[in-house]
């Protein structure tokens, strides 16, 4: 009986952990995506100080997320996003127009990251 109870507890913890991870990824990617929009908006309005600050904030948030997420998610996918965010910071500081392309790439990578961690019938099958 103890084994069954232990198994039920472990299974419940695993299920809770898995769905909590999905919820965390969804809310975090929403936030990060919003931050990238703010960077693009600030760059368009020629507010370089706001753009640089927002880019650095984005980098800080992403680094904080990857510190623990590397334990759970594929490291390769996270590294691609880290590289795109580093480009955004660099282009924001240089006031380079390439920032739009970097933002679009980062948005696409984040959308893919989110999609790959959200369960759906098609992915399960």
């Amino acid at each position: 009986m103890n084994r069954i109870i232990t198994s039920i507890v472990i299974l419940a913890i695993l299920a809770a952990g898995s769905f909590a991870a999905v919820a965390e990824v969804c809310s975090f990617t929403d936030r990060i995506s919003g931050e990238i929009d703010v960077i693009e908006q600030a760059f368009t309005e020629n507010d370089s100080e706001k753009c640089v600050n927002a880019a650095k904030e984005l980098q800080k948030d992403w680094d904080g997320f990857t510190d623990f997420s590397i334990l759970i998610f594929d490291a390769g996918q996270a590294l691609e996003i880290t590289s795109s965010i580093a480009e955004i910071v660099s282009f924001a500081e240089d006031e380079n127009d390439e920032i739009y392309a970097s933002c679009d790439r980062a948005q696409a990578q984040i959308a893919l990251f989110r999609a790959s961690h959200t369960p759906s019938v098609w992915k399960i099958l």
Binding site: S7, L11, L14, S18, L71, I72, F73, D74, A75, G76
Partner: peptide, 17 residues
């Protein structure tokens, strides 16, 4: 490059089931 948890979760799930 694959997190350890990706191996541990299915093993524990199968055993518990």
């Amino acid at each position: 490059s694959m997190p350890m948890i990706m191996g541990i979760v299915p093993i524990l799930t199968l055993v518990c089931l």
